[in-house]
Computed example of a mutant assay.
Amino acid sequence: MFPIVPIYYLVTWLRNKLYDLGIKKSVSYDFPVICVGNLSVGGTGKTPMIEYLIHLLKDEYKVATLSRGYKRKTKGFQLADKNANAASIGDEPFQFFSKFKNDILVAVDSDRRNGIQNLQQNNPDVILLDDAYQHRKVKAGFNVLLTTYANPYFKDIVLPTGNLREPRIGVKRADVIVVTKCPKVLSENEKNDIIKHINPNENQHVFFSSIVYSDCLFSVEKTKMIEEFESFTLVTGIANPKLLVGFLEAKHLNFEHLNFKDHHEFSEQDIDELNKKQLIVTTEKDFMRLKQYDSLKDKLFYLPITVKIDDEPKINKLIKDFVKR
């Protein structure tokens, strides 16, 4: 597939150039719109970053999230309500709604312009765009770009041989660059080396974040400490489960791992197989798709995660200052 790389590069570069020159039009807004996205295909930690921003802003502002709603069964604009589920709005938006439904608005629309226009009828103070970095029809006021420690964008190339959705130069549109999924201990030398490769502009800020796993597992009705699980089946349908597997292995837990592709749609055959398992641990995103099955209710638990950013006061101030402006 490598011979296709230059063609893909040229097409995506030209598309971005047309937007940069104003030949293709981007719509900007007179209220805060924050975009969280990446250059690569999946697995950078957008969902926990959106949740970080929700926690940061929800007590002071009316927050709305707008996602594409990947693999949902509906079309067009959908505003989450009491009837929402993973099939109607997608697993990640349903996760936002399940956790914050009394505090925020959650909407999906593949057309972000149309989604924002519809959300405006509900008068949000700030809109968080989930995975919209390449959606150039909308010009967010503030862009948060994520790239992983294990596979940073500056060591990658564009599709189809690499994982980049657009050329590396796209990083220059970001206001904040967060290197995600870092080791808990990251030396200043390592940070400086990564920053050197990123080569940020004067107006860009680089941060480093790591994943923090909960000590508790949750089901629809129960909460248990992770140490209570002597043997279980781990079910994942995420882009990269390596960190989760490593976390569980470090605790010397006994488990088998059923690894599905990202956003996997569980079939009846899959559910039949899972029904044979005595205890199942999964990610919060996968839990949103699996909890609808009553047969799994008493055996299905998820392990929540949060992100810890190396300089939280600074990034929090940058975000809040933008919203105030």
Rank of each mutant, 00 (worst) to 15 (best):
L14I: 15
D81N: 15
F301E: 09
I157S: 06
D272E: 11
L186P: 05
I50G: 07
D298T: 14
T148M: 06
I194C: 08
L57G: 12
S110H: 11
S267M: 04
N122P: 01
S28H: 02
R289V: 13
V178W: 07
N114Y: 07
T306Y: 08
P93S: 13
N316S: 13
K314F: 05
L79V: 02
V63M: 06
N85L: 02
K242M: 05
I195Y: 06
I7N: 07
V41R: 14
G43I: 04
V176L: 09
E92W: 10
K75Q: 13
P6F: 01
N102K: 15
T223H: 03
D294S: 14
E51H: 06
S67W: 07
K62Y: 00
L258D: 05
K46S: 01
I195L: 08
Q204V: 10
H135E: 04
R165H: 09
K58S: 04
I34V: 13
Y153E: 11
P183I: 11
L145W: 02
Q117G: 02
I116Q: 12
Q78F: 08
K24V: 02
D59Y: 05
D270A: 05
E249P: 02
D270W: 02
I104T: 01
V185D: 15
P152M: 14
E268G: 14
E284D: 04
L53N: 03
L303I: 09
H263W: 04
N123D: 12
T65S: 11
E228W: 00
E228I: 00
F207T: 03
P3E: 02
T65G: 11
L318C: 11
F247A: 01
V63G: 09
E249L: 12
R168K: 14
L244H: 01
Y29Q: 08
I34L: 13
N201Q: 14
G69K: 04
Q121T: 14
D20M: 02
A84S: 14
I195R: 15
R72C: 01
K276V: 09
F96H: 12
V106N: 10
Y133L: 09
P152R: 13
F31S: 08
M288H: 01
K285R: 13
Q134Y: 10
L318K: 14
T283M: 07
A86N: 04
Y133S: 06
I127K: 06
E249F: 03
L274I: 10
I309E: 00
A64M: 06
A239F: 08
R136V: 06
S267N: 10
I116R: 15
D193A: 15
